[in-house]
Amino acid sequence: MTVAELGAALGLTPCTPVSDREVTGAIVSDLLSDVLANGAPDYVWITIQTHRNVAAVASAQGLAAVILTAGRAPNEDLVSLAETESVTVFTSLQPTYTVAGLLYGLGVR
């Protein structure tokens, strides 16, 4: 499944241009250090954190996309860095648990 397909299937709101990268897995975490240790290339990251270093960590780990949950909006500097680094950032009004469950149901394992 691509980032674009995933965004459409979950009804996510894009904050940056949506890529066609193939998604290989996902990580749920609000600790950046956890994502630095356990994130992997082309993963989707589901989190409630909204500051600039989310984009820096996502790019450093080669993640394909970030989903900010529970109606949280990204800081402006998160969006601008994510655009520069070609990381797709989505928001969702649903809580992390629901987004993760739906993603799992779509076959992202």
């Binding site: 240790a37 450093a60 860095l81 680094e85």
Partner: peptide, 11 residues
């Protein structure tokens, strides 16, 4: 401190 390198372009 974990041995994660700092990418100056990002951080």
């Amino acid at each position: 401190l974990p041995s994660v390198p700092c990418d100056p372009a990002l951080f």
